[in-house]
Design a binder for these strands. Structure first.
Lengths: 145, 145
DNA sequence: CGGCTTTCCTTAACATGTTAATTGTTGCTA
DNA sequence: TAGCAACAATTAACATGTTAAGGAAAGCCG
């Protein structure tokens, strides 16, 4: 380390944290006063897009650990936004499905969500945006081929 | 939206989340069994690098909200890794300082931490690494000029 | 001086992140 | 088939994220 710059400046972990804060801020604003959290929103979107799936798949797609997912699904069930069903062939497993109310919640906000993403695309420029996604994928162990 | 691809694929928020997971994993491994968490580590590093500072500065540099910082500092004080001092001129304010034991904790691991960062630099290549930091900075509202 | 606002934390309350231990099911296998 | 390993959730325990409310100190202002 011959650099005279502070070690934590341009720190990758912190840069990732702050970028995520920046991106999530408008989404959190959108969800404020709906009673639905950022993570619950993430789960609902996956279910809206891909349909019924087992919890393991849902956990992977949502990037949530099982203990978190258990609690989130309990909350979403109470709110009537998802339905949990036991697999009759293997009663350890569980399938999750979005309800019509859940779908309605997503539909009412998907346009605004799309708009928020579009804002960041134009902030970075489309080319930079794609580059960023490619570089981020390299840091994700599940993405590296 | 004329794309036929799923809306959440190549989702920026999720990509940021997963990239951060990928980067933090080895750091978390390093800290496992030390009793010091990722956030506590972040606070200690800032104090080790910049020296004494008030809590507002510390919160900004560590990207922590005040309620979190309050709890973290209480924990670090109990562990004897930092010292909290009241500003005598303005007794609302507080200064935080790392202790010799805290410094020792950092020193014993800073080489490994540097090595972890170097791994990611070589995974991406130095040029990509710098590009990534630049693009991430664009997403951070506190960084945009 | 007495109130008013602002600032700096601190608490509270609830959701999530994280690791470890636990419970129920299934499958294998001696 | 009894016993045990493997698997899918769940629960527990503790730390943090997040928003809102509270408390103490400082500054302002009539």
């Amino acid at each position: 380390m011959s650099s005279h710059f502070p070690v934590t400046s341009r720190s990758l972990p912190i840069a990732l944290l702050r970028a995520r804060e920046g991106v999530m801020a408008p989404i959190r604003d959108m969800l404020a006063d709906t009673g639905v959290t950022e993570q619950q929103w993430r789960v609902l979107r996956m279910l809206a897009e891909f349909g019924v799936m087992d919890t393991k798949t849902l956990a992977n797609r949502s990037s949530l650990l099982f203990p978190s997912l258990t609690r989130i699904l309990a909350t979403l069930s109470e709110k009537g936004l998802v339905i949990q069903t036991r697999d009759q062939k293997d009663r350890r497993r569980q399938f999750i499905e979005i309800t019509p109310e859940g779908q309605k919640f997503i539909d009412a906000r998907s346009e605004e969500a799309t708009q928020i993403v579009a804002t960041f695309k134009s902030t970075l420029g489309l080319e930079n945006y794609e580059t960023l996604l490619d570089l981020l994928a390299l840091l994700d162990p599940d993405e590296r081929d």
